[in-house]
Design a protein around this nucleic acid. Sequence first.
DNA 1: CGTTGTTTTGCAACCGCTTGCACGGCTTAT
DNA 2: ATAAGCCGTGCAAGCGGTTGCAAAACAACG
Lengths: 343, 343
Amino acid sequence: MPTIRDVAEKAGVHPSTVSRVFSGKPTISNTTRQRVLAAADELGFQPNAIARSLSMQCTHTIAIAVSHAFQGYFEDVFFPQVMQGLLEVTSKYGFRVLVAGSNGHADEITQLLDIVGSRQADGIVMLSNRLDVDLISALQNQATPFVLIGRPDPSHEACAWVDSSDTMYTEQVINYLLGMGHQRIAYVGGDPDVLVSKERLHGYQIALQKAGISPLPEWVDYGFFVEDGGRQAVRRMSRLGELAPTAYYAANDLMAIGIMRSLQEQNLRIPEDVSVVGTNDSLLAAYASPALTSLYVPYSVMAAKATSLLIQSILAEEMPSSQTTIPCNLVIRASAGPAPAAL
Amino acid sequence: MPTIRDVAEKAGVHPSTVSRVFSGKPTISNTTRQRVLAAADELGFQPNAIARSLSMQCTHTIAIAVSHAFQGYFEDVFFPQVMQGLLEVTSKYGFRVLVAGSNGHADEITQLLDIVGSRQADGIVMLSNRLDVDLISALQNQATPFVLIGRPDPSHEACAWVDSSDTMYTEQVINYLLGMGHQRIAYVGGDPDVLVSKERLHGYQIALQKAGISPLPEWVDYGFFVEDGGRQAVRRMSRLGELAPTAYYAANDLMAIGIMRSLQEQNLRIPEDVSVVGTNDSLLAAYASPALTSLYVPYSVMAAKATSLLIQSILAEEMPSSQTTIPCNLVIRASAGPAPAAL
DNA sequence: CGTTGTTTTGCAACCGCTTGCACGGCTTAT
DNA sequence: ATAAGCCGTGCAAGCGGTTGCAAAACAACG
């Protein structure tokens, strides 16, 4: 691997001159520039990014941190979409992406902090914020620029985030169902320890409350994002007999499908007897039968926004602080319809 | 940000001693170790990974390079599963992951080479090998350890790869269909420029040839991995009238679903009239109706294997060279059945 | 108690690039 | 012709670690 000095020697100049050429400094005469470039080319020289990072105290790299990867996490829509939005932006700015995974165990989360504590990345895009670990304070202590995808818990409102307003859109979904005459509506969340779950629950409660309905506690359940979680929720709620829900809202499409399957196995028709709404508008929603009405959450847009926010702050050498809310969109298909006439 | 020297001063030792403590060198007395650790703790010291990388000439990072990300790439099963397998292994070895995306344009591919040319990663896991760019030669020139996921074209047989034996398993799928009496079998590939496509096509041809069938050229089409690609293939092949296929094999599940949809819209029953087999055994396959018989390709296993191969080579300071083939598994569901009785 | 052997620690030279400062050469104004 | 100003380049001190070698400290031995 040739270094800057090899090039310098070959071109008959001082190493610093080579450095200047390669970092695009304008104070180099054209003739020297050509000479240096030629020498570099001949040697196959490529500047060493690590050395440059050390010297410049910045890496042009951002980390994407998954604080809590549940079973099937990477195959759900969230992560891939985020990845896409992120890469779009980083490639535009010439930034690199470091993936910091963790399974939610405290020690791995520390490991995740190290990545930036050890100055391997200039900033972090932080995903899937859990409530049981105070990552945000830890990040703030590190004085590292970071942007959350998703909203922080209220005690950290001030930090930078990009969110989809889950409370509000959940409320809208419930309103949509209310509007079709449903009175008994179930909410099947993912992981109760994740903030989004609380937010969606909140939206659910607000909507019902505004409609003058006080939901049974049995109408709320958690399915941890897997199909069987949806099925079990149905099983439990079916026991309520005539108090069983006529509509289900699930926090992802896979659970919604589990719900539909389970209902269909009870010979209930969808949407004639029971309505089901999912979340994320994944491919599954489009091809399920009946096709699933689903709340589209534009994760890739959110990620793109978060990333450009982050990179711009890094370039400006300041801490990101802006808060952005991205609109969602209920994609209406066949799985939800008017409430069945009361018996 | 405190440095090793700050810690040294506080602990009353030489910086090199601090370094030794933090790199786990055994030649440090217990008392000094404690003293150093205490000082470091007090200062909130974390070793700077960049500096360490520069000094040690290795970064403990591997890059995952996507040479050709088509529309929807990140949401298909391939990338996410690879990511998962990769992260599992890297986190075991304490390696970091750098994502190098590219859209297949030549200049972005160069950019991808830079990542390792500039010593930001110790090795590469290379995905989705296209035939129109000779990345492999370029990588070999860089003397950088790399492992392919997927087989290289024959001229590079010698390099390290982990593959799923696409030719052989495609052949098996076709045999499965042949075994159920199908004679007119279609192959709908993804992108003809990607090596896998050629391999699957090859397997398809071999199987038919062994069965004494010479396929019509019209039975082969490419759908670029999207649903509409599947639909269009059906549309074209339907024109063949009684020479239209009675069975379709598609290179991913989404195209298979497009095929099923399109057939169903022609009032053909699946599998009574036409059989369909997909690839990847994605969630879509399980929840399509009818449930899609699909060839499961264990990408995450492949990625895990490739990654540990790569990391082990890096640690041993040698070039990876082994070639591994991972078995696939045809997951039989409802979309493929006996060929319809001849008219 | 001196000698030898074994730890443990310090010293200093790197790793490869950046950058403030100084200096030489050239242009322009006086 | 000389001073002032600018441009292009060289010099050297970093950035924050690592590591071979040597010196110091300590232990064991005769």
